[in-house]
């Protein structure tokens, strides 16, 4: 396994999101962002994560679409979570602005979900996944919004993406390279991609996934469990 960022959960500076502790003294839900180019499997990863983790964790999802509610509706159709656990943020054609430069709408969506579940007595949320709409290689989440971020690319987008780098590929806490099942059909050298990713990312982890396969999301789900254990232990 690979090492994590030394400073995985830096202090938040955004007003009212600054306090990682709830009123009852417990830590608020861990917030994980998922970003990456269009069509790489971000929403599919979110759906698979929800299926893999929903029996052990209380999860909610915030989507950031280019068009209004496509991703939220996909998650609803797939019935990975009940509707009250999914919120859609509208981004005015600029998902990267809503996850990085002006995070106010996303913070409100996250906080409203947290408040709803704390108030209803269902028990507080453990994990909030914030999904960005498909964007470009420079799209990253603000540290004021999420505690850790996953960047999702795929082998069909070309095996040169890890080499090209960019803030998403180089700095994300986890790089997911999805659709490995397609590698033979698109002439992609997975070992080369792994080598390039290591050159760009040093010791930061990389997960190769084929979400269509049985339990294909396991490497990502395991990473999330590890982050959450870290997050909960930090509170103690």
């Amino acid at each position: 396994m690979h090492l994590d960022h030394q400073d995985t959960f830096p202090e938040r500076h955004t007003y009212s999101a600054a306090d990682p502790v709830r009123a009852d003294g417990r830590r608020r839900a861990l917030r994980i962002g998922l970003g990456g180019p269009v069509g790489t499997g971000k929403t599919a990863t979110v759906a698979a994560l929800c299926r893999a983790l929903r029996d052990e964790l209380s999860i909610a999802v915030v989507t950031n679409d280019i068009y209004t509610r496509e991703d939220a509706e996909f998650l609803l159709r797939e019935a990975v979570l009940p509707a009250e656990r999914i919120a859609a943020v509208e981004t005015g054609a600029c998902p990267h602005t809503a996850i990085r430069d002006d995070i106010s709408a996303n913070l409100e969506a996250v906080e409203d979900l947290e408040a709803a579940f704390s108030a209803e007595g269902v028990g507080p949320l453990d994990l909030v996944l914030v999904e960005s709409g498909g964007d470009n290689l420079t799209a990253t989440f603000s540290k004021g919004l999420v505690d850790a971020q996953i960047f999702v690319i795929d082998v069909a987008g070309g095996d040169d993406i890890p080499r090209k780098g960019g803030p998403g590929v180089t700095t994300a806490d986890l790089l997911v390279i999805n659709k490995t099942d397609l590698a033979p059909y698109v002439g992609v050298d997975l070992e080369g991609m792994a080598r390039d990713a290591r050159a760009q990312r040093g010791e930061l982890p990389v997960a190769f996934t084929a979400l269509k396969a049985e339990n294909g999301v396991k490497p990502v789900a395991d990473w999330v469990r590890h982050q959450l254990a870290h997050w909960t232990a930090d509170a103690a």
Binding site: V89, G92, C94, D101, D102, A105
Partner: peptide, 11 residues
């Protein structure tokens, strides 16, 4: 216009 108060998502 970059003041982070949500205006970018509205027309």
């Amino acid at each position: 216009g970059r003041f982070p108060a949500g205006g970018h998502a509205h027309s």
